[in-house]
Design a protein around this nucleic acid. Structure first.
Lengths: 160, 160
DNA sequence: ATTTGTTTGGTCAGTATTCGTCAAGAAGGA
DNA sequence: TCCTTCTTGACGAATACTGACCAAACAAAT
């Protein structure tokens, strides 16, 4: 039922939990792939899709002799850091799907509660609906509006 | 004379009742469609029309291998009463001042948190701003829009 | 110091699988 | 009848996974 990607993701998360002193973990791609019985590039897929800046991670690596992969968990300490982080991941334009996925990630990270997420989704839907059916503005401009609204709402939360 | 949509809606509601530990259920669109003998996109219609944020639900999904649909119920208790109450308080038109006073009351009564109130105020302000500066609609129509948006956001929360 | 080989990780494209969207038509209700 | 809601199917898009090939770091031999 659970996908290979999820299994590997969970394994890496466990590594983070064991790691009490640092907020980074080191991997060897080849070994990890071997122990999960898959090709090495599967590890890259997991990293690319699960340990992204959007989800609060950075990845470093080095090839060759004593090569490694290092995953760092980034935690913004000040409210302003959080705002900047939000701004950077929301960007200037955002369609429905992207907005929803982002909110899901933010809830997962505990940055917004489920009720807050609900209110935000209602507001975004309303914005989109009014924009399209009442004012008939272009899909692109709707996405720009959505991004702006989303950023403002999240900015408020990040500072509160 | 129950429609297919209603049958599927009921089935999903049953899943929620069985689910004692979590307030979310996982589906496979293809399987569900198959067991109801309909096309997969029928499931999307049910979700789009029945499990909306305005009704207190959030839907997440993932395509591709090991894809799924997850429905989260943000509201677990029943009271439609509160919704009706909200509707009557908000009414059909609402200026800034009235909206803020209302939110203040709701926060005092513990019906919305300070963070939720913040998000709501940001959304209302944005709505108003866009309405006036971008589309230049009349103050009265802006108030109608505001009231509508506020009702939708509160309706979702009121169910929780 | 340069070359060559070994040991790592990265990238890309292809395939299978699963969900979403859209538009058109059907069915149902006022 | 007219309008809303429902239902369908064709098409598009995202995700998971693999394997072939590329690139970088290091080490040993010349």
């Amino acid at each position: 039922m659970s996908s290979l990607t999820q299994l590997i993701e969970s394994y890496i998360n466990e590594l983070f939990e064991e790691e009490r002193t640092e907020d980074s973990v080191f991997l060897r791609r080849k070994d990890l792939a071997e122990s999960f019985g898959c090709v090495p590039s599967q590890i890259n897929y997991v990293l690319r899709s699960r340990f992204t800046p959007e989800r609060g991670y950075l990845v470093e690596s080095q090839r060759g002799g004593h090569g490694y992969i290092r995953i760092l968990k980034i935690c913004s300490s000040t409210p302003q850091d959080r705002v900047n982080h939000i701004e950077s991941i929301v960007g200037d334009s955002l369609n429905d799907q992207e907005a929803r996925r982002l909110l899901s990630v933010l809830q997962e990270r505990g940055l917004v509660s489920s009720r807050e997420r609900l209110v935000i989704e209602v507001a975004l839907r309303f914005c989109d609906e009014v924009g399209s059916s009442v004012f008939d503005i272009s899909p692109y401009k709707r996405n720009v509006l959505q991004a702006e609204l989303l950023k403002r709402m999240l900015r408020g939360l990040a500072l509160s």
